[in-house]
Amino acid sequence: MANIMIRKDAAGSYVFYLPKRDLEDSIVSMEFDTPEKWGGEIKLNNGGTYLIEPQALPPRFPISLRARRLDAAE
């Protein structure tokens, strides 16, 4: 499990940030993105995938979360 932060960029799309490795990347797909259910498997632009426990849409961004790495890019 890794601590990550998800924020929205100026265009309103999600950006992924992994402080431990200073990795910042855009999120290209997110399994669930509705007010009731949000998260699940997320795919990064660099090819990595992470899993965020599906939950209700966070009230505001950025938000720090725990995520599990399914497939890292490097």
Partner: peptide
Amino acid sequence: NYISRHMEEKYG
């Protein structure tokens, strides 16, 4: 950038 990100999250 680290502290800026933190303030964005904690204090909006």
